[in-house]
Simulated assay, not measured.
Amino acid sequence: MTEFDTSSQDAATLETAPTRYIEGGGIRFAYRRLGPSTGTVLVLLQHFSGNIDAWDPAVVNVLATDRPVIAFDNAGVGRSTGQTPDNIAAMARHAVAFIKLLGLSEVDLLGFSLGGCVAQQIAAEHGRLVRKLILVGTAPRGGEEHLLTVLQDAFSQTDAPDVRLPLFFTKSSASQSAGQAFLKRAKVRKEDRDTDNGSAVTDPQAKALITWCATPDPEHAILRAIRQPALVVSGSHDTMLPADNAYAMFKALSNAQLVLYPDSGHGALFQYHELFVSHVRTFLEA
């Protein structure tokens, strides 16, 4: 449990919450916090290339109705200063530093894609800091990734209004419709939007993700070091980090549940936002 000075935090949404800053170790971290002032804080760890405003308000705001939620930019991302590392271990160290700067002694983690790799590293190394973790659309160390191939294919689809449509959703009309609804929600905020720092973020992040998956871990040392309860979530047709990764993590983790969503890609949590939030809440409250 934790408490912080919240000044109208309860009513804030991802679209309206002020962007706050906290500094330590030479890095000024940007973040937004929502929800009640008490309870175990849920910290969100973002996907490759994403910043605070790349989260889905339909996920973040509903989760924040009954628990404190913090979305933040790790080092070098968005409005946070510092340099984006090219390895998962350093990203995890920065995230832990941020959590400790906030004075939090125990948190839940929700890591999506690249953020899920970071969440695994943190949970394995900081057993007392992490109560529970949710791993979405991610991969274990030594897992399967097709990042560059999928990115190349997505950017070649010049008729797509946003690259996230081919990246995060399947080609079915239902999935594409859900993707368009997600993009509309993600663009609601007009004032004080987070910034995109381009290749200064994506180049080292791509190296970190590809290296993580290219590093053999036949004994699943990272996963076996994680003793906390975990919820593993994937889309059935995730082309970037395939669902086989989710099943591998589920088998190697000591206390995991597995959820696979049908006809969905990397952005399954946005396509099935109501179902996803329901599953997360059930898991965190158990």
Rank of each mutant, 00 (worst) to 15 (best):
M1Q: 13
T2A: 15
F4S: 08
A11K: 14
L14H: 02
R20H: 11
G24N: 09
G25I: 04
G25Q: 10
G26A: 15
I27E: 09
R32W: 01
R33Q: 14
S37F: 07
V43S: 05
L44I: 09
H47T: 13
A54Y: 11
W55G: 05
P57R: 05
V59R: 02
N61E: 08
V62R: 14
R67E: 11
R67C: 10
I70H: 02
F72D: 05
G76S: 03
V77C: 13
G78M: 01
G78V: 06
T81C: 02
G82E: 07
N87L: 07
I88R: 00
R93D: 08
R93Y: 01
A95S: 14
L101N: 12
L101C: 14
L104D: 13
E106L: 01
V107Y: 00
L109K: 03
L114G: 00
G116K: 12
G116P: 13
A119P: 00
A123H: 00
A124K: 11
G127P: 01
G127E: 03
R128V: 02
R131P: 03
R131G: 04
I134R: 00
V136P: 00
V136W: 05
G137P: 01
G137C: 04
T138C: 14
R141N: 00
R141W: 02
E145Y: 06
L147M: 05
F155P: 08
S156N: 10
Q157K: 14
T158M: 06
T158L: 11
V163E: 12
L165E: 00
F168N: 03
F168R: 01
K171D: 15
A174V: 06
S177A: 15
G179S: 08
A181Y: 04
K184R: 15
V188A: 05
D196S: 13
S199D: 15
T202H: 05
Q205L: 04
Q205G: 01
A206L: 08
A208C: 07
L209K: 02
L209Y: 06
P216W: 11
D217Q: 09
E219T: 14
H220V: 07
H220S: 13
A221Y: 11
L223T: 09
R224D: 08
P229C: 07
M240L: 06
L241Q: 04
Y247D: 10
A248Q: 13
A248Y: 01
F250C: 07
K251M: 07
L253E: 01
L253K: 02
L260T: 15
L260P: 12
L260E: 12
D263V: 04
S264V: 04
G265T: 05
G265P: 03
E274L: 09
E274R: 15
E274K: 15
L275V: 14
H279C: 06
T282D: 14
F283S: 11
L284A: 05
L284V: 06
A286W: 08
